[in-house]
């Protein structure tokens, strides 16, 4: 089997090869993950040019830091999406607050029950969905807006028409009850 395709290899194994400087392995990671990861960056930035720049930065980091990925400590897809999310969040933060929180492109009512239904039926997703379902609606919406769309506390407060301090403490409480529920 040619080693370049990575077709039968797990992402874990591909990242081990990336860590050894194997460009074909990075290409294979890109081929498998770029559509998912670009979607994640787009949900935060809503700008294809900015999202593409973030992807380029993120893949550079993957190239440079693949050795830091430890399959024993986490899932490769999660590791990759975290790198993309942090890079996108950095851009969103430095870009400042140009995007009005009532941007119609923000996503269609992420708190609707059917939005959570889009979570896959995989076990992790089902548990998270159940636990999110136990939160108050606005709390749940705040968490989804932050995680998926990269909204800051002030942006969430504006969008939910709630005081900033309330939003901060709600989201923190929501996170902690999620952790408890998932444990």
């Amino acid at each position: 089997m040619p080693s370049g395709t990575g077709g039968t290899e797990t992402l874990d194994a591909l990242l081990v090869r990336v860590a050894a400087g194997d460009r074909a392995a990075l290409r294979a990671v890109y081929g498998r993950q770029s559509t998912r990861l670009f979607g994640i960056a787009m949900a935060i930035l809503r700008d294809r040019t900015a999202a593409a720049d973030v992807m380029q930065d993120a893949f550079l980091r993957v190239w440079q830091r693949a050795a830091q990925f430890d399959p024993a400590r986490g899932d490769a897809q999660v590791w990759l999406s975290s790198i993309v999310r942090y890079a996108a969040l950095d851009v969103a933060r430095t870009r400042g607050r140009e995007i009005p929180s009532d941007d119609p492109d923000l996503g269609d009512a992420p708190v609707e029950a059917d939005a959570l239904d889009r979570l896959s039926s995989a076990e992790d997703s089902a548990r998270l969905r159940d636990c999110l379902g136990k939160l108050e609606a606005k709390n749940r919406e705040g968490i989804v807006l932050a995680f998926v769309h990269g909204l800051s506390h002030p942006e969430i407060a504006a969008r939910l028409a709630m005081p900033l301090g309330t939003v901060k403490s709600w989201i923190r409480r929501g996170l902690l009850s999620l952790r408890e529920c998932l444990s």
């Binding site: 770029s34 559509t35 998912r36 670009f38 979607g39 994640i40 787009m42 949900a43 935060i44 999202a51 593409a52 992807m55 986490g74 899932d75 897809q77 999660v78 590791w79 999406s81 975290s82 999310r85 996503g107 992420p110 939005a115 889009r118 979570l119 896959s120 995989a122 992790d124 997703s125 998270l128 969905r129 968490i143 989804v144 995680f147 998926v148 999620l178 952790r179 998932l182």
Partner: peptide, 16 residues
């Protein structure tokens, strides 16, 4: 990261 990871599925995949 592991706990919240399933939420990434709410971002619609898009080809770069």
């Amino acid at each position: 990261e592991q706990r919240l990871a399933p939420l990434t599925a709410l971002a619609p995949p898009e080809a770069p």
